[in-house]
Each structure stands twice: as C-alpha cells, then as structure tokens.
C-alpha cells in the first residue's frame, strides 16, 4: 500500500473521478463544483480590484482624494478536503455497487455510514476506502428530512449493518431492506432522534419514577412528600 498522496486528507485520482462522472452523469462532484465557485469568486475579486484601480486613477486625474479600498472578503465557498460526490437517491444503489465492484475503484472498505442534518434538508453520508489502491471518497445522498428513506448497503458491506442502525437511532433515517433495523445505542422506548437539530430532550417516564422512589427514600416518608415526581 503506497502512502496517500495527499497527506492532509483523502485522495482520489482525477481520472477515476472523471470515470465516475462519465458512468453516472447525475453524480455531482462537490469538490469540483466548489473549486469552480472559488475560481468564480477569485475572478470577481480581481474584477473588483481592477475597478478600484480605475477609480483611484480617475480620482488622481480629477484631484479628488483616493476612494477607500474594497474590504477583503473571505469566500463563502465550502472547502472539500476529502473527495466528495453528491449522488441522487435514484442511482444510489447502482453507484455504490459500481464503486465496490469496479476493478479501478475497488472500494471494499466502508468506514462509516452516517447523516448530516442541515435543518432544512438532510444528507446521508458514506465514506469509502480501498484497501487495495488506498484511495477514498465521500458519498453524500440528499434525502427528504421529514421522511428520510434510503436503500440499505448492508448487503454490500457487512459493517454497514451497525452503522445504519446507529444512524437510524440518532437521525431516524430508515434504511429500506435492512435485516434488523432497531435502535442500537439508546433504549427501545426512547422518544425522538437526538442528533437532529430540533431535538428536545425529555426524561423517560421510568426515570422520573426511579428518581421519585429515591426521593422518598431520602425523606423517609411514605408516600413521598411534594410534587417532585
């Protein structure tokens, strides 16, 4: 295994990215799009700088004080330090099967399957890595936030079984075709999915009851005093 060519993050050879886009035109290369947006931003900045220079010269010719230079702006373009692809739900299964079985990709190792809650939308994330070629990529699939559903990949990578259970537990994403989809970290009777941004914690009833019993032991009075329960 050769060391990754990009020591700060993941790496995917550009020819492979092109191959994936060629095979699935619906797939969007987020890093590529971000790069284009960044270039557009830089062009815009150059344009503004050029206009400013013109203004300065005009002001000089007219004998007026020089105008203030434009504020330095940070690009609002997200950086993708790991190769990231946005895959529509319709072709998701096909893309994943392709990535696993294609001899040039051989993404045989699923690092994790998870999700991101963007408040207005939700994305399922998968990180794939190849034990053979040592390249990796991140797959993001937009899903409906109110009713998140996505086909399972646990038949392609066994490890996805638990990762999907965890994501179901914490985000409420339903993986269609999963052999055993139930909560894994929280108790069976838990209300809500805590990693969603709008989650509000509520004490379970049995915990309130347990605390009440304990409180009655402290006060030594049966039945307990007060409204604490």
């Amino acid at each position: 295994m050769t060391p990754s060519r990009n020591p700060s993050g993941g790496f995917l050879p550009p020819e492979l990215a092109a191959r994936l886009r060629e095979r699935f035109p619906q797939v969007r290369d987020a890093a590529e799009a971000a790069r284009e947006a960044l270039e557009a931003f830089e062009r815009e900045q150059e344009e503004r700088q050029r206009r400013y220079q013109e203004e300065v010269e005009r002001a000089k010719a007219e004998g007026k004080p020089a105008p203030r230079p434009p504020r330095k702006e940070e690009p609002a373009v997200p950086r993708y330090r790991t190769p990231t692809f946005e895959v529509p739900r319709e072709v998701f299964r096909e893309v994943m099967e392709f990535l696993r079985d294609d001899p040039a990709f051989r993404m045989d190792y699923l690092s994790f399957a998870s999700a991101i809650d963007w408040k207005d939308r939700m994305e399922c994330t998968y990180h794939l890595w190849s034990t053979v070629h040592n390249h990796e990529l991140l797959v993001k699939v937009p899903v409906d936030r109110d009713d998140p559903r996505i086909p399972t990949v646990s038949d392609l990578w066994r490890t996805a079984e638990w990762h999907e259970r965890e994501t179901y537990d914490l985000f409420g994403v339903v993986y269609e075709g999963h052999p055993d989809l139930r909560r894994i970290l929280l108790t069976e009777d838990w209300k809500g999915h805590p990693l969603r941004k709008d989650y509000v914690y509520e004490d379970p009833d049995w915990l309130v009851e347990l605390a009440r019993v304990r409180q009655s032991e402290v006060s030594g009075v049966q039945p307990p005093l007060g409204e604490r329960g």
Binding site: L186, P194, Y201, L207, A211, R214, E217
Partner: peptide, 13 residues
Amino acid sequence: NYSILKGIDTVIP
C-alpha cells in the same frame, strides 16, 4: 447532553 444521568445520587444514595 441527552443521555447522561446528572448525578448518580438521583437513583442510589
């Protein structure tokens, strides 16, 4: 935090 008990003395002395 949503999963940690705020003090074990809520359940045992």
